[in-house]
């Protein structure tokens, strides 16, 4: 194997985030190392082979770089999930507050009140959990964060389902407006989708992480 073929194989196994930097550093390292072996009296081919041997096999180096990059990826994924949880306030509160006509009732129906409380509680729990998970990812427990991220998604899904039930119930007793669900549904789905993608991304890196 030559330095170039080693680098090609290594590059194919590295995550895109650090690939370029690792390859530049590895190339410079291998060139220096081969030069040292040449200076010690080895042929160019032998020097290159010895440099590659000293550097370590592709699998070991790639695995360790991937493990280090996985920490970054988990941090990004956790931050994305936190942002998605925070933005969920727009479809949950911002949109209905600005699109629904004034309430037609003197006293709010109990079931609507209950649904609103449940949806808000689920969202706040999910947001709080996302904040804890993100703090874990940015401190010493990225593996724990990767494991806990699906719970953030599940919390948002539960809040979204409860909100959908609330919409149905609301339109049973109040004037139907289409602006609310048409605006809120894509935003809510976007937030849920983003948190699910973040959870899946971090989940796939979990095995590479060490606490």
């Amino acid at each position: 194997m030559t330095i170039e073929s080693y680098l090609a194989e290594l590059g194919a196994r590295l995550p895109r985030i650090r690939r370029r930097r690792v390859l530049v550093e590895a190339r410079e390292h291998l060139v220096d190392s081969a030069a040292r072996h040449s200076a010690a009296g080895r042929s160019a081919q032998e020097a290159e082979r010895a440099a590659l041997e000293d550097f370590g096999d592709v699998d070991t180096v790639a695995r360790r770089v991937r493990a280090e990059v996985a920490v970054h990826e988990t941090r990004i994924a956790s931050t994305l999930a936190l942002a998605a949880s925070a933005l969920f306030v727009v479809p949950l509160y911002g949109v209905p507050e600005n699109t629904l006509p004034p309430a037609p009732w003197m006293a709010k129906p109990v079931d609507i009140d209950v649904l609103q409380t449940i949806a808000a509680s689920l969202w706040l729990t999910s947001l709080g959990f996302a904040a804890v998970v993100t703090a874990s990812a940015w401190s010493r427990w990225p593996r724990l964060a990767a494991a806990a991220l699906p719970s953030v998604s599940l919390g948002l899904v539960a809040a979204a389902v409860t909100s959908a039930a609330l919409v149905v119930r609301w339109f049973g007793v109040a004037q139907v407006t289409f602006a609310w669900p048409l605006l809120a549904a894509p935003l809510a789905l976007g937030c849920v989708g983003a948190s699910a993608i973040a959870a899946a991304w971090a989940g796939r890196r979990r095995e590479l992480l060490r606490d």
Partner: peptide, 16 residues
């Protein structure tokens, strides 16, 4: 005399 390539992930960790 460790596998030299493993020094780089260790350096990235120190940076992090």
């Amino acid at each position: 005399d460790l596998p030299e390539g493993t020094v780089y992930p260790a350096l990235y960790r120190l940076e992090r």
